[in-house]
Amino acid sequence: MKYNFLLLLAFLAIFFIACEEDDHDECQECHVLCALDDGTTHEHEIGEFCGDDLHDIEANGYTLPSEMTIKGVTYEAGHVFAPNELCCEAHGHEDDHDH
């Protein structure tokens, strides 16, 4: 009985130690999403954003600091990409070579 109880305690200790919190890296690569005529979507990288800056563009959108041409379309400085036209998601790990 004592052995069983100790076993359960040991198991519970491992069990709860394993419940570690999810911590995010606060810096993320972000892209603007541009719909192309062929029905596909192009992701254009706009750089890495961290902390409050990341929150700001995710909540309010991204304002172009200078004119930018993406796939033949020119966007004026001050153009605002809405939050749902942005993505700062991570992607899978790729080998150096194509698979």
Partner: peptide, 11 residues
């Protein structure tokens, strides 16, 4: 039931 769906990191 609380359901949060995050497409973005902070919002």
């Amino acid at each position: 039931n609380n359901l949060q769906e995050y497409d973005k990191w902070t919002v």
